[in-house]
Every structure is written in structure tokens, then in C-alpha cells.
């Protein structure tokens, strides 16, 4: 244990958790609106390829991230139209979306295998980066790390401090009552789904443009599923979402750091399980919050 530098470990945790945090905050808004979209993995990987393609074509990683958000949002609209207008089953449609997204991304990325994308520079924060301990942990990352945290903060503000946010929550809690009050349930949900897709796309692009950075088929390797789990873990609250992402990223980073430090006697297969077991354990201790009342139920405005 003594070989592990806590500053480096904490700094690693922030980075490891960023893609899942991005995807999870989008899904949180979707679920708060009463929609369960299990297609996060498919949207993430589509975002990963769109981001990479746009970034290499334009040379700008920022346009790449914009393209990833757009790609994720467009794909999520397939889900939105099917579930909101055609009232298809959300669980099955979401799973089908993942299948579709994996195929789509592989086709889109065919010409980009082995290509090196543009570099995303770290954000230089003079002053802040030199604060002892906090500086290296928090303030020496790329801009997306902060954008992700900013999105979480804005979502919290939106849900708790704005009228639109209250309407969204009302729609998620009881869509029939919300409809009776004259709120546009379907329109609002479509907007939430698009936001979820955009965020998942950003999360995917963070992998293909910053973390890895390269395009390879199937590169999200299950990150979308973890994002889904973290939303439940956070009991649909943005603050706890950050905690959940850090906890999960932390357990992953810690188990790798323990292996790298040498001289650990814990069998590695148990270390591999640790992030998942830790998540379950914390969930049991914290007790789960209640899911939005209309989560996953189809809405039909019968007049």
C-alpha cells in the first residue's frame, strides 16, 4: 500500500470516471423524465466514432466533441421516436439500440482504424494547478473533465432550481397527472432523450479522443452499462452520481495501482471483482432512493 502515491491515485480516479460520469448524467436526466434508455452503450460507441471522425477530418477535437454529441443525440432519436411516438417497449428498444449502435459505429469507423487523432491538450490553469495536493489532483486535466463536472452542476441546478426542471420531474413522477396539467409529456421526453444521447456521445468521444485515443471497434467495452448502473446507484441524484462515478473509477484505479505497486498478496481475480462488489456494498449501506414513478412506463395521452 505504501507504494501508492495518493495524489497520483486521486488524479487517476478523476480521469477514469469522466466518461462514465458523462454518459451517466445524460441517462439520469432521461430517467428523471420517466424514460429508461438501456442503449447507453450503443450511443457511447456511436459518439466515440463520430467524435473521432469529425476530429480527424477537421483537426479540431472540440468540433469532434460537438460531432459526438450530435451523433449520440441523433441515434437517441431513433429510440425517442420508437418509444415515445410508437410506444414501443423501452427496455427492448434500448437493448436493440445498443446492437444497432455497435454495428453502425463499426461501419462508420471502417476507414479510421489505425489513424491517429488530434491531441487534446491539458487545460493550463495557472495558480490553481500549483495548490499543494489539490492542484495535481484536481487542476491538471483536460477541459472535458471540467465540462463533465459543469454539466453535472448545471443538471442539478436545472432539476432543483428551475421551473422546466420541476416540470421534467413531474413528468417523470406521474405522466398522466403532468399531462392533465397541460405539460407536453412527449415533447419534453424527446428533449431529455436527445440530451441523454448527446451526453453519452461525449462520454464515448472522451474515450476515443482523450483516454485511448484512437478508434477501434467495440472500444467502449461495456462502459455504457456501468453508466446505467451508476444512475441507479446515485438514486437519480446528480450529487451522488459524481460520488458513484468516483467510487467506481476509484475501485478500478485502485486495483490496478495495487497490482502495479507490487507486493500485494490479494489474489488478482478478487481485485477484479472489487469495483462491482464495492458498488453493491455501498448501495446496501446507503439504501436506495426511490425511482421516478413513471420510469419505463409507456405514455399515451388518451383524451
Amino acid at each position: 500500500m505504501s507504494n501508492i502515491d495518493p495524489i497520483l491515485l486521486l488524479s487517476a480516479i478523476i480521469v477514469v470516471s469522466t466518461p462514465i460520469l458523462l454518459a451517466a448524467i445524460g441517462e439520469l436526466v432521461v430517467e428523471r423524465a420517466g424514460v429508461l434508455n438501456l442503449g447507453v452503450e450503443g450511443m457511447m460507441i456511436t459518439g466515440a466514432v463520430c467524435g473521432f471522425v469529425v476530429a480527424t477530418a477537421t483537426g479540431s477535437p472540440w468540433l469532434g466533441f460537438a460531432g459526438a454529441a450530435l451523433g449520440g443525440a441523433l441515434l437517441s432519436m431513433v429510440f425517442g421516436i420508437l418509444t415515445q411516438l410508437f410506444l414501443s417497449n423501452q427496455v427492448a428498444t434500448g437493448l436493440a439500440l445498443t446492437l444497432f449502435g455497435l454495428g453502425l459505429s463499426a461501419l462508420l469507423g471502417q476507414g479510421y482504424i489505425g489513424v491517429k487523432g488530434p491531441v487534446v491538450p491539458d487545460l493550463y490553469l495557472p495558480g490553481l494547478r500549483d495548490i499543494p495536493f489539490l492542484g495535481p489532483v484536481m487542476f491538471r486535466h483536460d477541459a472535458m473533465v471540467y465540462i463533465a463536472l459543469l454539466i453535472v452542476a448545471l443538471v442539478w441546478l436545472f432539476l432543483n432550481r428551475t421551473r422546466a426542471g420541476r416540470v421534467l420531474r413531474a413528468v417523470g413522477e406521474n405522466h398522466d397527472a403532468a399531462h392533465a396539467l397541460g405539460y407536453k409529456v412527449v415533447r419534453l421526453r424527446l428533449a431529455a432523450i436527445a440530451f441523454g444521447g448527446a451526453c453519452a456521445g461525449l462520454g464515448g468521444a472522451y474515450l476515443s479522443l482523450v483516454r485511448v485515443p484512437q478508434w477501434t471497434e467495440g472500444m467502449t467495452a461495456g462502459a455504457g452499462w456501468i453508466a446505467l448502473a451508476i444512475v441507479v446507484f446515485a438514486s437519480w441524484r446528480p450529487g451522488r452520481l459524481v460520488l458513484g462515478a468516483w467510487l467506481f473509477g476509484g475501485a478500478t484505479a485502485l486495483q490496478l495501482a495495487l497490482q502495479a505497486s507490487g507486493g500485494v498478496q490479494i489474489p488478482i481475480e478478487y481485485l477484479q471483482m472489487a469495483p462491482y462488489l464495492a458498488t453493491i456494498l455501498v448501495l446496501v449501506i446507503l439504501r436506495a432512493g426511490r425511482a421516478p414513478g413513471s420510469l419505463g412506463r409507456p405514455f399515451h395521452a388518451s383524451s
Binding site: V78, L82, F86, L87, S88, N89, A92, T93, L95, A96, L97, L99, F100, G101, L102, G103, L104, S105, A106, L107, Q110, E217
Partner: peptide
């Protein structure tokens, strides 16, 4: 490519689920 097959499967599921309406 397998990718085209996966997309095809995805489409089939989409249509099956949507048409159910």
C-alpha cells in the same frame, strides 16, 4: 461485414417493436 449484420438485426428489432403499436 458483421457490423452490417448487427445493424440489420437492430433494424429488425426496431420494426418489430414499433409496429406492435
Amino acid at each position: 461485414p458483421l457490423a452490417a449484420i448487427q445493424m440489420f438485426q437492430g433494424m429488425l428489432l426496431f420494426f418489430l417493436l414499433a409496429i406492435d403499436v
